[in-house]
Amino acid sequence: MAFLDLGALRFHVQRLGPADGGPPAATAVLLHGLLTDSLASYYFTLAPALAAAGVEVLMYDQRGHGRSGRPPGGYRLERFVDDAEELLERLAPDRPVHLVGNSFGGTVAFALAARRPERITGILAIESEPASPAWAVKLDGILRQAETGLADEPTLAWVAARRGAHTARLARSAGRLLAGTTLARDIPASRLPTEAQLRRIGCPVLAVYGTESDLAAQAAWLESLLPDCRSTFVPGQEHSVLIEAPDTVLALTLAWLREHGAELRGPAARGDLERSLR
């Protein structure tokens, strides 16, 4: 396990690939979501296959999550973006990177690309949106509900019965994060990028949605806001596309990296993997 100290905070970082030891076809930084998420969501899904395709994969646990440090405060969006920016300087100082963001991870990716457009080659945003006043209101509601629900034993028992012990354990761990930090207050109080700032994200963006997710309705708005944004919809999926349909997300990611100039190697080189999944 690798740790990297940024100031007083210790970050759990994982780097995979390229699997063949050759020069990277591309560098991808994978950003996970809030509360129940960690780099594990990528480590066991996209990361090994990307590494096998010759991609250098960088993953880290965001502040408060997984095995990274959990300060009692400091959870506004801009702090997460500071972390991403500084980790980029440390881990990939000399090369632009592709960002893959799941849910809140994509929100961090959009904010980082607005701040440092020259560092980012492209964004693949899975079930994600840039921060906006509407986003802050929505997150406030979700986090308040989670704060109450995840501290409530009957709710946790219901989760265990309906979704299994592992999900219940993740919920319990998210409850500890909310109870032990100011995250639920901080996220809605984040400094929000303006629409003018977001319009400066000139890199290509692929927005991936589940057809059954509420977020899918924002696809047209995001496409009109960003200079170069395309949407794709995964049938039958809700918010957890990455976890529920990892093969589809992998195929989309490989095709997207290739489209933007990455010369992939291994089994992904000719697109066989994508075709076999259709």
Partner: peptide, 24 residues
């Protein structure tokens, strides 16, 4: 938790080297 499995993967690799690729 899934993040514990990531940690276990690191320990497995430290113990037995590249022969064990838990993530893959």
């Amino acid at each position: 938790e899934s993040i514990d499995l990531v940690t276990l993967a690191g320990h497995l690799q430290e113990r037995w080297g590249e022969r064990i690729n838990f993530a893959e």
